[in-house]
């Protein structure tokens, strides 16, 4: 349904998207995972015909995005990262605008309007001007609108930004229903790992390049087992000891020593009994996509726009959470 070949987009010399190649099958939920500024939104904008690529090719529903933009637009639905509602119109009027401009027949429009507004819990507020809505309500309305014309491919740019878990699960249920009934394909971007877990396949993108593309399970397997975090009275000495004794790759930061190991259940008892440095704590967990990202790129998913101080704070929080 989506196919790109060596897609590039340069802005005044910066390579926002730098040779991206991937393909998405019908009915698949495909995720683009990466930090802000990695090129996710730029890729979406090319795929939905808002930007023309500098070089390379992209086809959506079989149509070339540069040569046949109108056919592409008919096939897709979009839920943008930033608001794109008319806040002086009511929810209903926003949906009507959308339905009419996408040529949804009146009867069907009415039916779906009810169905979708019920789904996002806004039916009672349909006659209110969008200006009076909270951020989360606006987001829900946008999602309802993006689904109104039953697109073949749905693009979701950071879909659950600012949504409560209940609505999130409502929306995923509806999307899964559409997928079963109509084989809708979903392309989403996110920098939340837990959200990426919903995907059938994930492309990890960093600095405009796809660094890995596989199912979430395969990606996690790539990390090479479980992640163990050890805190000792002398981390520096402990790091050296582990290096000498087990010949393992270790990483040390303020949160302790991190190692990845295949058979952690057997390793831990043996490790504790033979280790000479005093151990304060041991923490074992299954790998997450965070670990995959870290291993592939050498850095954690971070917010590009955040100031250095914010980033440090976030870093502390993340480490503290281990």
């Amino acid at each position: 349904m989506i196919e790109t070949t060596d897609l590039c987009k340069h802005f005044d010399g910066t390579k926002a998207v730098d040779g991206v190649t991937f393909s998405v099958d019908k009915g698949e939920i495909f995720g683009f995972l990466g930090p802000n500024g990695a090129g996710k939104t730029t890729t979406i904008n090319i795929l939905c015909t808002l930007l023309t690529p500098t070089s390379g090719e992209a086809r959506v529903n079989g149509y070339d995005v540069s040569k046949n933009p109108n056919e592409v637009r008919k096939s897709i639905g979009l839920i943008f990262q930033e608001p794109s509602l008319d806040d002086r119109l009511t929810a209903e009027e926003n949906l009507d605008f959308h339905g009419m401009i996408y040529d949804v027949p009146k009867g069907i429009r009415k039916e779906r309007k009810k169905e979708l507004l019920d789904m996002v819990d806004l039916w009672d507020r349909r006659k209110d001007v969008v200006k009076t809505y909270s951020g989360g309500m606006k987001r829900r309305l946008e999602i309802a609108r993006g689904l109104l014309h039953h697109p073949k491919i749905l693009f979701l740019d950071e879909p659950t930004l600012g949504l409560d878990p209940q609505t999130r699960s409502h929306i995923w249920r509806y999307i899964n229903k559409l997928r079963e009934e109509q084989g809708i394909t979903i392309f989403m971007t996110t920098h939340y790992m837990d959200e990426a877990e919903n995907c059938d396949r994930i492309a990890i993108i960093d600095y405009g390049k796809v660094v890995a593309l596989d199912t979430p399970d395969n990606l996690k397997r790539f990390v090479g087992g479980d992640v163990i975090t050890i805190k000792t009275t002398d981390d520096e000495k402990a790091e050296k000891e582990i290096g000498e004794q087990y010949n393992l790759h270790v990483r040390r930061d303020a949160g302790g020593i991190h190692l990845e190991i295949e058979n952690s259940e057997e390793f831990i008892p043996q490790f504790i009994s033979s280790f000479s440095t005093k151990i304060n704590s041991i923490h074992l967990r299954r790998p997450t996509l965070d670990d995959v990202f870290l291993k592939l790129t050498g850095h954690e998913i971070r917010t590009e726009e955040a100031s250095v101080r914010d980033r440090m704070k976030a870093g502390m929080r993340m480490r503290g959470g281990h």
């Binding site: 808002l50 109108n70 637009r73 794109s84 509602l85 401009i101 996408y102 040529d103």
Partner: peptide, 14 residues
């Protein structure tokens, strides 16, 4: 500025 232009520009109309 408020994003609604994008809603119009990605619609399947010229």
């Amino acid at each position: 500025q408020f994003g609604f232009l994008r809603e119009m520009l990605v619609a399947p109309v010229s």
